[in-house]
Amino acid sequence: MRLSRRSALLLLAFGVWSWLLWPTFIRNVWDGERSWSAGAPTAYLIVHLVIAFVSLALGTAIGVLGWRGYRASRR
C-alpha cells in the first residue's frame, strides 16, 4: 500500500504533535493534587499515565508510518 504524500505528512504531523502534547500532560498530572495521597500514587495518576504512555506509543507508531510513507512518496 502506498500513501499519498499529503496523507504521509498528516501522519507524521500527528506523531510530532503527540510528542509535543503528552510529555506536558504527564508533567501536569504528576504534579497534580489528585495524583498523590500520603506519598503513594492514586488511581487517578496511574490511569492517566497509562493513557499518556499508550498515546505516546501510538503516536510514535503513526509517526513512523508517516515518515516511511513520506520517504516512499519521494521516489
Rank of each mutant, 00 (worst) to 15 (best):
I46D: 08
W30H: 06
S18F: 00
L12K: 05
G69S: 07
H48M: 11
G66M: 08
V29F: 04
V16K: 13
G59M: 00
A38L: 12
G66A: 11
L21Y: 00
R5A: 15
P41K: 04
F53Y: 14
W17Y: 12
A8D: 14
V50P: 01
R75T: 10
G59H: 00
R27C: 03
S4A: 07
T24E: 11
H48K: 11
I62K: 00
W17L: 15
A57D: 02
W30Q: 13
G63Q: 04
L11S: 03
R6S: 15
L21D: 07
F25Y: 11
I46R: 14
A52R: 07
F53M: 09
L58V: 13
D31L: 12
R68Q: 09
W22P: 00
A57W: 05
R68Y: 06
A13Y: 11
L58M: 14
T24A: 15
G15W: 04
A38C: 02
R34K: 10
G39K: 06
Y44D: 12
S4H: 08
L65T: 02
R27I: 09
P41Y: 06
R68A: 04
G59N: 01
S4Y: 06
V64T: 13
G32S: 15
L65D: 02
D31K: 05
V16Y: 01
V47F: 11
T24W: 12
L65E: 03
G15Q: 04
R75Q: 14
L10N: 01
L56D: 14
G66N: 11
R74C: 05
F25L: 07
L65A: 15
V54D: 01
A38F: 00
R2G: 09
A72L: 09
A61Q: 11
A61V: 10
S35N: 00
L56H: 03
G66R: 01
Y70T: 03
W30E: 08
I51H: 08
W22H: 02
L11K: 09
A52Y: 01
G15R: 08
L21M: 10
V50S: 04
L10I: 15
R74F: 02
G63A: 13
T42W: 02
F25N: 05
L20H: 03
A38M: 08
N28L: 10
R71A: 13
W36C: 01
T60I: 09
R34A: 15
W22V: 06
L49K: 03
N28M: 12
R6Q: 14
G69H: 03
R27G: 05
R5D: 07
A52T: 11
L3I: 14
V16N: 06
G32R: 08
G59P: 01
A38R: 10
M1C: 12
P41L: 09
S37L: 14
R34I: 05
L58R: 05
V47E: 15
W30F: 10
T42H: 02
S37R: 09
G69R: 07
S7M: 08
V47P: 00
S18Y: 01
S7P: 00
T60C: 10
S73C: 10
L12E: 07
L10W: 09
I46H: 08
L10Q: 06
R2A: 13
G39H: 12
F53V: 14
A72V: 03
L11N: 00
L9H: 13
T24N: 04
